Computed example of a mutant assay.
Amino acid sequence: MAAEEQAEGLQFHPMEQFTVEPLFGGDTIHWYTPTNVTLWMALAVLAIIGLLVLGTRKRAIVPSRTQSVAELAYGFVHSMVEDVAGKEALKYFPYIMTLFIFIVFSNFLGLIPMSFVTTSHIAVTVVLALLVFVSVTLLGFYLHGIKFLGLFWVSSAPLALRPVLAVIEIISYFVRPVSHSIRLAGNVMAGHAVIEVFATFAGAILIAPLALVGIVAMFGMDVLVAFIQAYVFTILTCVYLKDALHPSH
């Protein structure tokens, strides 16, 4: 009996919140099945349209709050692209702005109770990272041809070390989408899992106050992580874009 009570007391699953489920019932998920991931990605897109399209449609000289937020986001990403990748990269600003604003909204919508954070799933972040990786690689070869391979040849190093450094550079280049995607998904998932653990212990009378303090602290941390991880993903995209535009060491 004691063993059963102990087992029941330990039955909490902090990773259960990341389960992909069909919206309309059933157990089988196909590529075309609407899921909770589909729903929250669609809500993120609708929220983005509401901010950037509907919120700025009047283009008032004295902006409303919504227009001010939209202009602030636009200016923030625009400055990031120009500062990191140079003015030549500004023609690719719409793509980078799309990445940033989608990740930001997905992260913040995931902070709503009973919501689903889409960027916690590696399948979502891998697609985003692979789009960046393939795009900048194709762009590099399109702009520079075979000279793009100069990205892997460290001409400033001693001649004997250059082949070794070239191998290291090639490996690090192809690891980019892995680190790019895992960093975002891992940080977002970890924060939500820890909040779930604290929420489980909030039911215990003796440690409930400490658990509530932990929930508030972790939620505040997750708010920062929601923005910081979008910023990190975007600034790394700008760095990779810079390599495609200026491949030589």
Rank of each mutant, 00 (worst) to 15 (best):
residue 22 P to A: 12
residue 52 L to K: 12
residue 55 G to S: 05
residue 196 E to A: 15
residue 139 L to E: 04
residue 111 L to F: 13
residue 32 Y to Q: 13
residue 23 L to W: 08
residue 202 A to F: 01
residue 228 I to F: 04
residue 241 L to V: 03
residue 213 V to R: 02
residue 48 I to C: 13
residue 91 K to G: 10
residue 206 L to P: 04
residue 123 A to I: 03
residue 147 K to S: 15
residue 98 T to S: 15
residue 68 S to R: 11
residue 23 L to V: 12
residue 83 D to S: 11
residue 243 D to M: 06
residue 194 V to D: 14
residue 106 S to K: 05
residue 108 F to Y: 09
residue 183 R to N: 08
residue 243 D to V: 01
residue 231 Y to V: 13
residue 203 G to C: 08
residue 193 A to V: 11
residue 195 I to F: 01
residue 118 T to N: 05
residue 10 L to S: 13
residue 242 K to I: 00
residue 100 F to C: 14
residue 29 I to N: 10
residue 19 T to A: 05
residue 90 L to V: 15
residue 226 A to H: 07
residue 59 R to T: 12
residue 90 L to F: 05
residue 185 A to K: 01
residue 215 I to A: 07
residue 208 A to Y: 08
residue 60 A to F: 05
residue 193 A to T: 15
residue 122 I to D: 06
residue 103 I to R: 01
residue 195 I to Y: 00
residue 41 M to W: 03
residue 132 V to Y: 00
residue 137 T to H: 06
residue 57 R to Q: 05
residue 26 G to I: 09
residue 170 I to T: 11
residue 16 E to A: 07
residue 215 I to K: 05
residue 211 A to C: 11
residue 125 T to I: 02
residue 56 T to C: 09
residue 145 G to V: 09
residue 4 E to L: 10
residue 13 H to E: 15
residue 89 A to P: 09
residue 93 F to E: 14
residue 73 A to W: 02
residue 29 I to E: 14
residue 213 V to A: 12
residue 14 P to V: 08
residue 17 Q to R: 08
residue 77 V to K: 02
residue 15 M to W: 06
residue 88 E to M: 13
residue 78 H to G: 15
residue 163 P to R: 00
residue 77 V to N: 07
residue 10 L to P: 13
residue 126 V to N: 03
residue 213 V to S: 09
residue 29 I to H: 11
residue 220 G to Q: 03
residue 166 A to P: 12
residue 75 G to T: 05
residue 205 I to K: 14
residue 36 N to V: 13
residue 108 F to V: 03
residue 137 T to W: 02
residue 8 E to R: 12
residue 140 G to E: 01
residue 161 L to G: 06
residue 3 A to Q: 04
residue 82 E to Y: 04
residue 198 F to V: 10
residue 148 F to K: 00
residue 95 Y to T: 12
residue 85 A to D: 12
residue 84 V to S: 06
residue 71 E to W: 07
residue 20 V to F: 02
residue 99 L to V: 05
residue 124 V to G: 07
residue 212 L to D: 00
residue 54 L to F: 12
residue 92 Y to L: 11
residue 82 E to M: 15
residue 227 F to V: 04
residue 101 I to P: 00
residue 72 L to Q: 12
residue 57 R to D: 06
residue 154 V to H: 13
residue 217 A to R: 03
residue 8 E to Y: 11
residue 2 A to T: 02
residue 108 F to K: 03
residue 167 V to I: 03
residue 93 F to Q: 10
residue 243 D to C: 08
residue 158 P to Y: 02
residue 135 S to R: 10
residue 36 N to A: 07
residue 208 A to C: 11
residue 217 A to Q: 09
residue 2 A to M: 04
residue 200 T to W: 15
residue 3 A to S: 06
residue 23 L to H: 11
residue 173 Y to E: 01
residue 37 V to W: 01
residue 131 L to E: 14
residue 159 L to E: 15
